[in-house]
Design a binder for these strands. Structure first.
Length: 198
DNA sequence: TCTACGATCTTT
DNA sequence: AAGATCGTAGAT
């Protein structure tokens, strides 16, 4: 298993999002296959955390690609994003759902005994399974890091639809099909609104 | 400081 | 349909 190089991430978030489907998140004994993502693009994406400019929280989104952006949502959930684009551009891909590949027992334990797709379909659940902490925000995802992204076969059949939980965004950004998932996978949250895509 | 509000999940 | 729960961000 080879680690994805930093150059993989230094592209438009939507391209990286598509290519992240099927790739592996590796954290110690746990390996997760990415099955659903959302792109938060640069520039002019009113759904993005970067819509208001640079802040202490979103600083990693403006930094070098291939690093993590972790933030706390609703006071409870830790969300994992992968930083994309060039340095100085605020963009990232949110990891929304995964399929377990290894470390099933550890994942189940961290998820409170939940099994099946309910275990990993939703960004908060992925964060919980990986035991993410806020101090991991800004950490690289390559070069022997505790959390890494490894290469795996590219996914051909995918489905796309509007992003979840961004009602505050402009109408075009609300409608934009920036949520991508593996077509045949049961490890996908909110199947409604997703349609076959290139 | 103060206040409002989330890129959600669970239970009712 | 609504509560949990707290760090951010923007306003004061």
């Amino acid at each position: 298993m080879t680690c994805l190089p930093q150059s993989f991430y230094a592209r438009d978030a939507l391209e990286v999002a598509r290519d992240l489907l099927g790739k592996h998140l590796v954290a110690g004994p746990i390996v997760l296959r990415i099955s659903e993502v959302e792109a938060y693009r640069w520039p002019n994406d009113t759904a993005s955390h970067c819509r208001m400019g640079r802040t202490a929280r979103n600083a990693p989104m403006w930094g070098p690609a291939g690093h993590a952006y972790v933030y706390l949502c609703y006071g409870i959930h830790r969300m994992l994003n992968v930083v994309t684009n060039q340095q100085g551009e605020g963009a990232a891909v949110l990891i929304r759902a995964c399929e377990p590949v290894a470390g099933l027992a550890e994942i189940e334990e961290r998820r409170g005994g939940v099994k099946g797709p309910a275990m990993l379909t939703g960004p908060g659940k992925v964060g919980s399974a990986l035991a993410l902490t806020l101090d991991q925000s800004g950490a690289p995802l390559f070069g022997g890091a505790p959390l890494e992204l490894h290469d795996a076969p590219t996914v051909k059949q995918l489905i796309a639809g509007p992003r979840i939980g961004i009602d505050f965004a402009s109408a075009p950004d609300r409608r934009a099909p920036y949520r991508l998932a593996i077509a045949e996978s049961p490890w996908v949250s909110h199947r409604r609104g997703l349609e076959p895509a290139g």
